[in-house]
Write a protein that binds this DNA or RNA. Structure first.
Length: 564
RNA sequence: UGGGACGUCGCCAAGUGGUAAGGCACGGGGUUUUGAUCCCCGCAUCCGCAGGUUCGAAUCCUGCCGUCCCAGCCA
């Protein structure tokens, strides 16, 4: 340990690490790794693993490698490598010069396979894929030995060499471990170690190889080569641990890392499998891997989630082996907490309603001072131009309302944030009875002071119509209608539960002028509305596009729902 | 029904024989020129169920029940 207490609460994996350290079971230093397959973008579930692996390395003075598990060139490509690299770095982690690829080890992997053959622990099998499946047996029935299981070492060596040389077509032969076809653990029934794949260009090794090693064989050896001490993975690999150990026990491995499994993250109202996320992208349900509705790191970043908030979330949910279904409220709490502390406040009107302040001169402009953060003076101040014509939000006006409604009503008064108290004198409607404009009067003596003799209950935000800048604002809702869209119900799959209203685009919003200077990717709190992030892809210098990251906590809709 | 794992408050999660932490959510109150923030207070006589061991069990034993994962030449 590097001295201070770990900032992250202790979990069962950290406990194991600490115990190993105390017992002197670790030769050098703690070494972990994050091993993504470059076949899709990283999501919030990966963030949990990244925080765990890199976090342990940081807190116990160890190292964490970034290693691409690239043994299946059919599904992988270099774009994903780049996206994953960027996302891990953005989350705030660094691997120095320890960026590896499983494909870096292909030659060593091959040599270890030859060693296995020489020890009589692996053989070349000529069964077809279908036959292998039949021979494997079932969950309740033992499998039976392949007729090729007892080939001589010489013949296996010859055949395996010729597999590498490209003498056999795809699917004609595989290299298999020679373990136990009757094992109650199906993974131990002579699993495939190598398959033949001609004609694919591997993003790292090109056309150098026509045989590719399987995950179960590659992973333990890659870990051992890198001197990993704790190989942390998710629960579905628990059944594979005997195989992980078998591989290392049957070759001259440099060391034997310990595999530890934890349960993957399930977040309500979204899906977390790469296959499903890929389908959402490829079938056009979303606008891409970085669509702000996606639970991907790239999507969340674009939506306005900070790296700090994602890390905080990963700490809060903990690490265990039990199945879980985390509520969105947890994630929202983490973003709000971070953004509340760091996002400058601004004013923005989402649904504009014109207000004419009849007793304010038409040519007058006052520049009113507003703080950028009510609890953090160091964030400074800005000015807001105040004019005769302004916009307020339609939701902040009602012709009549109960006394619970603290905003503007006909004949009533309300405080304009950082400005004056105004009274609504007249409501102007169009032919359909729709309110199109309000005529108000302001109380000049109320700038920074409360009026005598009456209490102004409400404060609303506003933007000068002359100086305000137009913008598009995108409001997001959950991508799915059901908390667990993964679970099949009534013959429906997850795509049947997609929320058709997950995106609302508001095209006539008005922002306070200062926002024209914002940069793509910058986050703000639009007072009384929520946290918003300038989109990094859409919009121009003169047409701003903002994404709503999350709303502010809201006790009003609850109150409103209870009465009248 | 073979093997592996998991079941503590609506959700996440401590606890590993000495009499149920904490967070989120929720409810109540206070401060407030954001119905935000912040601050108080409340929120499992009970730990999947049933027996047993013990002075004493969520923690040990036995038996049930429930949930998840595994039959890719995917990872």
């Amino acid at each position: 340990m590097s001295g201070d207490q770990p900032v992250v609460p202790i979990n069962f994996i950290r406990k194991i690490v600490e115990d190993d350290l105390k017992a002197g079971r670790i030769e050098g230093r703690i070494a972990t790794r994050f091993p993504p397959e470059p076949n899709g973008y990283l999501h919030i579930g990966h963030a949990k693993s990244i925080c765990l692996n890199f976090g342990i390395a940081e807190d116990y003075d160890g190292t964490c490698n970034l290693r691409f598990d690239d043994t299946n060139p059919h599904k992988e490509n270099i774009e994903y490598v780049q996206a994953i690299t960027e996302d891990v770095r953005w989350l705030g982690y660094d691997w120095d010069d320890r960026l590896f690829y499983a494909s870096d080890y292909f030659e060593q992997l091959y040599a270890f396979a030859v060693e296995l053959i020489n020890r009589g622990k692996a053989y070349v099998c000529d069964l077809t894929a279908e036959e292998i499946r039949e021979y494997r047996g079932t969950l309740t029935m033992a499998g039976k030995d392949s007729p090729y299981r007892n080939r001589s070492i010489t013949q296996n060596l010859d055949l395996f060499g010729r597999m590498r040389n490209g003498e056999f077509p795809d699917g004609s032969r595989v290299l298999r471990a020679r373990i136990d076809m009757a094992s109650p653990n199906i993974n131990m029934r002579d699993p495939t170690l190598y398959r033949i794949r001609h004609g694919v260009i591997h993003h790292q090794t090109g056309e150098e190889w026509c045989i590719y090693p399987m995950y179960d064989y590659t992973h333990p050896i890659s870990d051992a080569i890198e001197g990993i001490t704790h190989s942390i993975c998710t629960l579905e690999f628990e059944d594979h641990r005997p195989l992980y150990d078998w591989v290392l026990d049957n070759i001259s491995a440099p060391c034997h890392p310990q595999q530890i499994e934890f349960s993957r993250l399930n977040l309500q109202y979204t899906v977390m499998s790469k296959r499903k996320l890929t389908e959402l992208v490829n079938e056009g349900y979303v606008e891409g891997w970085d669509d702000p509705r996606m639970p991907t790191i790239a999507g969340m970043r674009r939506r306005g989630y900070s790296a700090a908030s994602i890390r905080d979330f990963c700490e809060r949910i903990g690490v265990t082996k039990s199945e879980n279904s985390v509520e969105m409220g947890m994630l929202e709490y983490s973003v709000r907490e971070d953004l509340n502390g760091h996002a400058p406040r601004r004013m923005a009107v989402l649904h504009p309603l014109r207000v004419i302040i009849t007793n304010y001169p038409d040519d007058k402009v006052e520049y009113l001072e507003a703080v950028n953060h009510p609890q953090d003076e160091s964030m400074g101040v800005r000015t807001l131009p105040f004019t005769r014509e302004i916009y307020i939000d339609r939701d902040d006006f009602r012709e009549e309302a109960s006394s619970k409604f603290k905003r503007l009503v006909s004949g009533g008064e309300v405080r304009l944030r950082y400005a004056y108290v105004i009274r609504c004198d007249e409501v102007v409607k169009d032919a359909h009875g729709e309110v199109i404009e309000l005529h108000c009067s302001y109380a000049p003596a109320t700038l920074g002071v409360n009026p005598e003799g009456r209490k102004i209950k409400g404060v609303i935000h506003w933007v000068s119509s002359r100086f305000g800048v137009p913008a598009e604002i995108r409001l997001y809702d959950r991508l799915f209608n059901h908390p667990t869209p993964d679970a099949a119900r009534d013959g429906k799959n997850y795509k049947d539960q997609i929320n058709p209203d997950s995106l609302h685009t508001l095209t006539h919003c008005i922002l306070e002028p200062r926002l024209a200077e914002s940069k793509p990717g910058e986050s703000f709190q639009f007072e009384r509305e929520g946290y918003f992030c300038r989109d990094s892809k859409l919009g121009t210098e003169s047409y701003l596009v903002f994404n709503r990251t999350v709303t502010l906590r809201d006790s009003w809709t609850k109150i409103e729902g209870q009465h009248d």
